[in-house]
Every structure is written in C-alpha cells, then in structure tokens.
C-alpha cells in the first residue's frame, strides 16, 4: 500500500481521513467505482473524504464513535456498488482482540487496515494508565514481523506522514482509567 495518497485531517476527523487514504488506494488499484467522478476544479480525494464523513456520522467537534465506524464503511461500499466488502473491527470495546498475525493479511492487494490507537502511560510491569485522549486513527502501509510502516493523517501543522515502528505484543495486562482497573488480554507496546 506504499503508494497510498496522504490526505491530512481537519479537527477531529482522523478516522474518515485514514479511511479515505486506504480506500483511495483501493480505488486506484482495481476498484475504480470507489472514486468520485472527476469534476473540473474539484479534488476527488476530498470528495471521497466528505462522503465518508457523512456515512460515518463524523463530528468535527467530537470525532467518530467506534460503533459507527464499521457500519458506516459498509454502507459507503454498498452505495458505490460493492456489496461483498467485509469490514471487521477487533480490539478495545469489541468482542475479539487479535494478535499481530492478523496484520499479515495486509500483504494481499484486496485487504487493508485502519489502526485505532490511544495514548497511555506505562506505569509498571504489564500495568498501564489511560491518558485523556479521544484516540487516533492511522492507516497501515506495510507490515511484517511486528514491524509496521504507517501513514498518520495528522493535521498539516503537526507531524502528518509516514512512520516506521516496531511493536511488541504484551498479553494479560492491567489498565487503569477513571473508572478503575481492569484486565486487558492484549496491548501492543511501541518504543
């Protein structure tokens, strides 16, 4: 997915920005009906972003709710005429956590990932505390053996762009937030 374009986000629109980046890549690589019609003087990528903004009920002030991400994407794909797209979420707030082997599927031309990240502080061995954050979404460019190259749609004034990182899955941890301390089956630690 290395040739993915990089639209930057505005305000709290990281999810539709990250989604539009990977979906635009699919549009240019075998699925042309994902791309809006070319209209002189308009930016096609920006028009795709706006469609996703509407489908996923994104608020510039509040961002995107987890529970509408997958259904919003599915409805978008149906509207473009692709009825057989599988969109699945695994992770925090969902039923199933997953090991990093799931990301190996990114090597297939018809599979892409949007990573939903949060910022927390390591407070001890397998102990973390949650930071006050809305969370963030990024796209996966390449993945192999716990090394990922990602595309961050951050605000133009921040640090939008490509980053390489190695992450380490850590299983059976405890997370403390304002509601208390509870177990999590899996987190991915970044350096």
């Amino acid at each position: 997915k290395y040739t993915m374009p990089d639209l930057d986000q505005e305000e709290n629109t990281c999810f539709p920005a990250a989604a539009s980046n990977i979906i635009y890549w699919f549009g240019e690589n075998g699925y042309p009906n994902l791309l809006p019609a070319l209209v002189t003087g308009e930016n096609r990528h920006r028009r795709l972003f706006t469609k996703l903004l509407v489908h996923c009920n994104v608020s510039y002030r509040l961002g995107t709710k987890f529970e509408v991400m997958t259904t919003g994407l599915k409805n978008f794909f149906k509207e473009q005429g692709y009825n057989d797209v599988k969109v699945s979420y695994r992770g925090f707030g969902g039923a199933v956590f997953t090991g990093p082997e799931w990301f190996e599927k990114n090597g297939q031309d018809n599979v892409g990932f949007i990573l939903c990240i949060d910022y927390v502080k390591k407070t001890g061995e397998r102990e973390y505390s949650a930071a006050e954050s809305l969370g963030h979404c990024i796209s996966l460019l390449t993945y192999s053996d716990n090394v990922a190259v990602i595309l961050d749609p951050a605000h133009t004034a921040d640090e939008r762009g490509r980053y390489t990182f190695r992450f380490q899955p850590v299983r059976n941890v405890r997370l403390t937030d304002s509601n208390g301390t509870y177990p999590l089956p899996l987190v991915y630690e970044l350096p």
Binding site: V85, N110, V111, L190
Partner: peptide
C-alpha cells in the same frame, strides 16, 4: 508510549 487499541480490516472482493 502509544498502544494500539484495535484495528479495522477492510477486505474487498478478490480481483478477477
């Protein structure tokens, strides 16, 4: 540190 809290996978129909 950042921690991945989840991921969304998009699987398009296979290309012919």
């Amino acid at each position: 540190a950042a921690i991945l809290t989840g991921a969304i996978c998009i699987e398009m129909p296979p290309l012919a």
